[in-house]
Nucleic acid binder design. Structure first.
Length: 194
DNA sequence: TCTAGGATCGGCT
DNA sequence: GCCGATCCTAGAT
């Protein structure tokens, strides 16, 4: 399991290092493991695309201002749950959004949650889809991912992303964030199998 | 209170 | 590739 020190680093470093890591979810109906292939960094009060931009402190973003190594979950478009991992800590207000992954364990359970007709590649290739595949809800906001007892944690199983497969570029869906929309804070592992 | 808009998805053309 | 669903959140009033 990744320790809290892993998350207590600059957000861009954490985002980069999260690629290829295993995200494990133990829920009442079973266990699911996915390999992270796409993440985005959100850099706190100075980042117009970030929920803590300009020091915004509301109930929703309270978790982002807390300790590193916790899950920040929010509802988007009133429909989908997005999973973030709080980084840095000490009130930095920064986090990494988990956008895409490949199912490694618990494929049957994921399919049950996502529906029988969903294409294989579409099981977990977006933040909302991943949330559904892992049965993430607002009740999971604030979970400590450095505590196996939370049922949500990350692990390094030794799989490495080839340097040439690593890509970075502008974040998705943040056109309204001005110049920050073009910051290369999206990291992905191209063509990496689960 | 009211209103605008959103870190998306899936169905349809 | 386009477009509507859907409802919560944040900021304004």
């Amino acid at each position: 399991m990744l320790r809290r020190e892993f998350y207590q680093r600059p957000t861009v470093e954490v985002a980069h290092d999260l690629l290829g890591k295993l995200l494990v979810r133990r829920h009442r109906d079973g266990m699911v493991g996915v390999r992270l292939v796409e993440v985005e960094a959100y850099l706190g009060p100075a980042d117009p695309a970030c929920h803590t931009y300009r020091g915004r402190r509301t109930r929703r973003v309270a978790t982002m201002w807390g300790e590193a190594g916790h899950a920040y979950v929010y509802l988007i478009y009133g429909v989908h749950h997005c999973l973030n991992l709080v980084t840095v800590g000490g009130g930095a207000g920064e986090a990494v959004l988990v956008r895409g992954a490949a199912v490694v364990h618990g494929r049957d359970l994921v399919r049950r949650r996502r529906g029988p007709r969903v294409a294989e590649r579409a099981l977990t290739d977006g933040p909302g889809k991943l949330g559904q595949a892992l049965a993430i809800s607002l009740a999971d906001d604030g979970l400590d991912v450095c505590d196996r007892g939370s049922g949500l944690w990350l692990a390094d199983d030794g799989v490495r992303i080839r340097p040439r497969a690593r890509q970075c570029g502008p974040r998705v869906g943040v056109e309204s964030a001005g110049a920050a929309a073009s910051w290369p804070l999206r990291f992905l592992a191209a063509g990496e199998p689960g």
